[in-house]
Design a protein around this nucleic acid. Structure first.
Lengths: 235, 235
DNA sequence: ATTAAATGTGTCATTTCGACACAATAATAG
DNA sequence: CTATTATTGTGTCGAAATGACACATTTAAT
C-alpha cells in the first residue's frame, strides 16, 4: 500500500505576497499606476499595488483580485513576471513576493476606486523611489514588456479599441525609448496583416485625420504564439 | 514617530518549494536530468529535482544549493522561470513552487552524486509523465529556452568549452526541433563575431574534421544584454 | 586509388531594411 | 478665400540580409 502523507514536517512556511506592476499609455509616455501608501508598513512612501495570497486562492486569481480591487477591471492582460524572495527584502518579516504585470487602457479604469486607494498614474521616467525591491520589479517588468512587444502583438492591450498607426508608433517609441521612422514603421505594421481599416478617422486631430484601425482578433489569436521571427521560415 | 511593525498579522504562511529543470545536450537531443523518486510523496514516480526553501536562504541560493547537491556543479547558468501556486497542485499540502532552469554541459557533472539521487538523463521527447504540474514546468522552460536562445548567445552553456559549428547547429536544431541549412547557419553564426578559431580540429570525426571554436567571452558579456535584434538599429 | 560522408566556402536571385521625397488633408492665419 | 503649417499616406532606391543551392576539400573505410 502506498504511503500517504498529511503534511510536510520540519519545513518552513513563509508569507507570500502578490505585487502588481500596472502599465498604461497616455499617448505620449508609458505610465505606472502606483500607490502612495496610507497604511503600514512604509506608510507615506510609494509602492506597487499588492496584497497577500489567501489560503484557498490560486496565485493568478489573487493577482486578478488585487487588480480588480484597484481598477475595477477584469479580463485584462496579466502575466506572471517572476518571484522575489531575498531574505531581507521586507524588513517586517520574510516575505516572498510573486509579481505580475498588467497592461491596461489608461482611460478605462474606475477613477473612484483608484482615488480611494490613493493611487496615481506616474510616468515611468519620473517615477519616485519605491519601497523594498519594487524598483527592481518595475525594471524587470519593463525588460519583459520590451521582449514581449517585440515578438508578439501585445502593444494593443495599452491602446483603445480603435487606434491610428501614428498612435501605435508613439506607443512603441515609448516602450523602447527610441524614435522610429514613420514610413518604415507603417510599412512594417501593415505588412503583418493584423490591422483592419475601420473606415473611420481620428476626429481629434488639428491636421490631417489619421485612419482608425482595429486589431484583427482572429489573426491575433492565431499568430500570438506562432511568432518565431528569428528562426528561418523554412529549411 | 514612524510606526514599526514586527510581524504581519492574520496572514497565511505557506510552504515554498524550489524545483529545477536541468537541460543538457548529448550531441543529438535535448535531455532532462530527472529523478525517480525513492522517497515520499509520490515515491516511485518521476519528477524534477527539488527541495524546500530554508528559513534564512535566498531563493536563488536555494536553487544553487539544490543543483549543487544533485550535480556537484556550481557556477552554472541558472535562471528563474516562474512560480507555480495552484491551490491543489500538491495533494499533500498547499505548496508554492518557485521554479528555476539550468543549462549544463552534460558531461561535466558528478556521476556518483547523480546515481545516489536516482537521477537520469532522459530525452525531452521521450520524457515520462512527471508528478504534480512538473510537466507544465518543463513545457514552459522549453518555451523560455527557445526565446532566450533566439535572442541571446545562450546555447554555448550546453556545449563543452570547445565545439564545432556543426555541433552548434545540431544544438539549435534540437532546441527548435527543426532542420537548418548548413551553409546559411554557418554564415549567420560566424557573422556575429562571437566565435574564435582555436586552431584545433575535432579528432573524433570519421570524415573531415571540423574546426573547433570557443566563445569570445568578452564579446559575449558585452553583447548579452544588448540584443534587440528586432528593433531597428538606428532612426 | 576509390568511395562515401561530412565540412568549408561561394554564388545568385529575392526579400527586407533604412533613408528619404512627395503628395494629400485639414485647421488656422492673414 | 487663399496661403501656411503640421500631420498623414504612399512610393522609390540602394544596401544588406536571407534562402536555396553548387562545388571543392578532407578523412576514414573499402
Amino acid at each position: 500500500m502506498t504511503h500517504l502523507m498529511n503534511r510536510y514536517l520540519h519545513s518552513t512556511r513563509l508569507l507570500v505576497a502578490i505585487d502588481c506592476i500596472i502599465f498604461g499609455f497616455d499617448g505620449e509616455e508609458i505610465k505606472l499606476l502606483l500607490i502612495k501608501r496610507n497604511f503600514e508598513p512604509e506608510k507615506g512612501k510609494w509602492s506597487l499595488m499588492g496584497g497577500f495570497v489567501k489560503e484557498e486562492e490560486d496565485l493568478e486569481v489573487g493577482a486578478e483580485r488585487i487588480l480588480y480591487e484597484l481598477t475595477g477591471l477584469d479580463n485584462i492582460y496579466v502575466e506572471h513576471l517572476q518571484t522575489y524572495g531575498k531574505v531581507n527584502r521586507d524588513p517586517v518579516e520574510r516575505t516572498i513576493s510573486v509579481v505580475f504585470f498588467a497592461l491596461i487602457n489608461i482611460h478605462a479604469h474606475d477613477q473612484e476606486s483608484v482615488r480611494a486607494h490613493n493611487a496615481q498614474w506616474i510616468s515611468l521616467k519620473n517615477a519616485p523611489k519605491l519601497i523594498f525591491d519594487h524598483d527592481r520589479m518595475v525594471e524587470n517588468a519593463l525588460e519583459r514588456l520590451r521582449y514581449k512587444a517585440a515578438l508578439h502583438p501585445i502593444g494593443f492591450e495599452l491602446l483603445p479599441e480603435k487606434f491610428t498607426i501614428p498612435q501605435l508608433q508613439k506607443l512603441y517609441e515609448a516602450i523602447y525609448d527610441m524614435r522610429l521612422d514613420r514610413r518604415n514603421f507603417s510599412r512594417k505594421i501593415l505588412s503583418t496583416g493584423l490591422l483592419i481599416d475601420t473606415g473611420e478617422k481620428n476626429e481629434n486631430s488639428a491636421t490631417k485625420k489619421a485612419i482608425l484601425y482595429r486589431l484583427d482578433k482572429q489573426k491575433y489569436e492565431s499568430k500570438f504564439n506562432a511568432f518565431w521571427y528569428f528562426m528561418p521560415e523554412s529549411s
